[in-house]
Amino acid sequence: MADSRTFKEVYEQYFAALKYSAMRYVGDEELACDLLQDVFVKLWERVDEFENELQLKTYLYRMVRNHCLTFLRDKQRQEKRMEGFEVEETEDSFVYQMIKAEIYALINEIFEELPEACRNVYAKSLEGKSHKEIAGELNIISKFNK
């Protein structure tokens, strides 16, 4: 396969069957063609390594399978990484999230400036504890302890 004419012949001879094979894995014709393009680029880089047509054919089918499986594995990993992340689709949502984060940062900044006793009471209220529970835990005498 030392020249482009031979490469073109190989491409034309195997493309349809390889596309069918790729589509069995990925289920999308355009994606299958994209993956095949990568396979043929790799084939071009290995121009003179094949002794016969059987080696070439075996290489092509294995490359298609491996390339499709790698794509599917990477896609699955990407989807798993994205689980739990809500996609923000609008500018308003983005601005809302930004404002919310800044308010949270300001509240934390103010919280850190409180005296330690106040911080303890506030932290326990954020944990969902009632006034009575907080007073009991911190030994605070109040109308709740009566």
Rank of each mutant, 00 (worst) to 15 (best):
N139Y: 04
S142K: 03
D92W: 05
A17W: 02
A135R: 01
R24G: 14
S130A: 07
K80N: 12
D3C: 05
K80G: 07
A22L: 11
W44H: 08
E109F: 05
L31K: 13
E113Y: 10
E49M: 10
I134F: 02
A101M: 03
D38E: 15
Q55P: 00
V95L: 10
V47N: 13
C68G: 03
K132V: 15
E88L: 13
K57T: 04
F144S: 11
E30Q: 12
V10Q: 01
E29H: 06
Y61D: 06
L18I: 08
E88F: 02
Y104A: 12
Q13S: 14
E9K: 15
I99E: 07
L36Y: 01
Y14P: 03
K100T: 02
I103N: 05
N52G: 12
S130T: 11
S130I: 01
H67W: 04
N66A: 09
K129W: 09
M98P: 01
L114T: 02
N145P: 01
Q37L: 09
A2M: 04
F40D: 00
S142I: 00
N66E: 12
E29S: 10
L69S: 05
S93Y: 03
N120A: 15
A101L: 10
K132R: 13
L126R: 01
I99W: 05
L114I: 08
F40P: 02
Q13H: 10
Y59E: 02
D74V: 09
E91Y: 09
K80C: 02
E116W: 07
F144Y: 14
M98R: 13
A101F: 01
M82Q: 07
A16L: 14
I140A: 05
K143W: 10
R24M: 13
E102I: 00
L72A: 03
E109A: 09
R81Y: 10
N52Y: 04
